[in-house]
Amino acid sequence: MNSVNSAAAEAIITEAPWVDVCELTDLAPNTGICALINQQQIALLYSSRLDEVFAIGNYDPIGKANVLSRGIIGSIGDAVVVASPLYKQHFDLRTGECLESPEHKVNVYPVQVIDGKVQVQI
């Protein structure tokens, strides 16, 4: 069952188009910005140390405001996280899970950087 589900999920994701969002140079090292894609607020967070861009939902389900793109990027153990600027809970940038209260989760989106352009699959 499990394998069928994840295969289906992957199938959907691979079907979703890559959307051009901005230039990598629009992102200052180790900070985030917010993008509007298909009327959804997406937080793009750039770790220059890992040389990797992450995309998650911008809405903080605990603080109830669109602020996650404005949090500080860091690591807790092995997890790469962003800390909400409102009440400082940490959201895992790879899984979307809130480390302090796992019942809260934000969406995670695949990101790629092609020729200096940041693209999100959504």
Partner: peptide, 16 residues
């Protein structure tokens, strides 16, 4: 810039 809290980046105090 990546070291600063949002308040320091946007030079204001974030409200709720």
């Amino acid at each position: 810039i990546g070291l600063q809290d949002t308040n320091d980046i946007y030079l204001g105090n974030m409200q709720k």
